[in-house]
């Protein structure tokens, strides 16, 4: 048994990663508590997506500590192991399984045994089907459940992907630019949806849409050039000189 180093759900300390000498993440430190929702903003190329790549095992950091639940070293696991540990991720470019139906997309994401035997032989149980219905309702795609995911609008694909995250039942959700390409009304609904999810689960949201960030009404971390520039309420960070200079002011 390793001793818990921190009570935080996610703990990043002194993380750096360089691509061909270019430091995409530079001595980044960040903690997210259980059930917390955190918004992350920052200019293009600040390293927001790269940070998610590191947390989910897609990119290995050159140095630094990445701990989940205080004791699991995420740098030692690959993407599928990390997903099974309870970290779900929505990509910046919405990625759903286009040749499957909406319902199948959710069934495939559902938290359960993903081994070969189970996937070959087990049926979806009554409870699991009920859970799918609940999620369909939550993401407002009940009507379209038997349509192919390819036929959904851009905004609906974003929602389906969030629905798949819910089906995964993770402890931490990483949501990269969820409202890109959504109408204003859809954006408002998405903020409500994420706020409903937070509390039970921790959520990290990356977004450029300031109205949406304001709607979320949570602690904001500003990233720039691969490290944290400022942290606090949206009003607090918006008043910060360096933030205005590097991001908001432009």
């Amino acid at each position: 048994m390793t001793e818990k180093l921190t009570d935080a759900l996610l703990y990043l300390d002194g993380v750096s990663v360089a691509f061909d000498g270019f430091k995409a993440i530079n001595d980044l430190s960040l903690t997210v508590e259980h059930g917390e929702m955190r918004a992350i903003i920052g200019p293009n190329g600040a390293g927001k997506t790269t940070m998610m790549d590191i947390i989910t095992g897609k990119t290995r950091p050159d140095k630094g500590t990445v701990l989940f639940e205080g004791e699991i070293d995420l740098t030692r696991h690959d993407e599928s192991a990390i997903a099974l540990l309870g970290i779900g991720r929505k990509f910046q470019k919405p990625t759903v399984f286009e040749s499957h139906t909406v319902q199948d997309n959710l069934e495939l994401a559902l938290k359960r045994d993903h081994g070969i035997i189970a996937t070959l032989f087990h049926d979806t149980s009554k409870e699991q089907k009920d859970r799918i219905d609940e999620i369909l309702d939550e993401i407002r795609l009940t009507e379209r459940r038997s349509h192919l995911a390819a036929d959904l609008s851009h905004g609906q694909k974003q929602w389906l992907e969030i629905g798949m995250l819910l089906a995964q039942d993770p402890k931490l959700l990483l949501v990269d630019e969820p409202v890109a390409g959504m109408t204003d009304a859809e954006t408002v609904e998405t903020a409500k949806l994420l706020r409903r999810i937070a509390g039970e689960k921790a959520v990290i949201v990356v977004e450029h849409d300031m109205t949406f960030i304001r709607d979320l009404d949570v602690k904001v971390t500003v990233l720039a050039e691969g490290s944290v520039l400022a942290e606090g309420s949206l009003d607090h960070v918006s008043a910060d000189e360096r933030v205005i200079e590097s991001y908001l002011g432009r």
């Binding site: 690959d78 599928s80 997903a83 399984f97 286009e98 938290k111 993903h114 996937t119």
Partner: peptide, 17 residues
């Protein structure tokens, strides 16, 4: 169905576990 997921979006399939 997972086979088709791997064919169409391999990394997404990994990120679901």
């Amino acid at each position: 169905k997972v086979l088709v997921c791997v064919r169409d979006a391999e990394s997404r399939t990994r990120f679901i576990g």
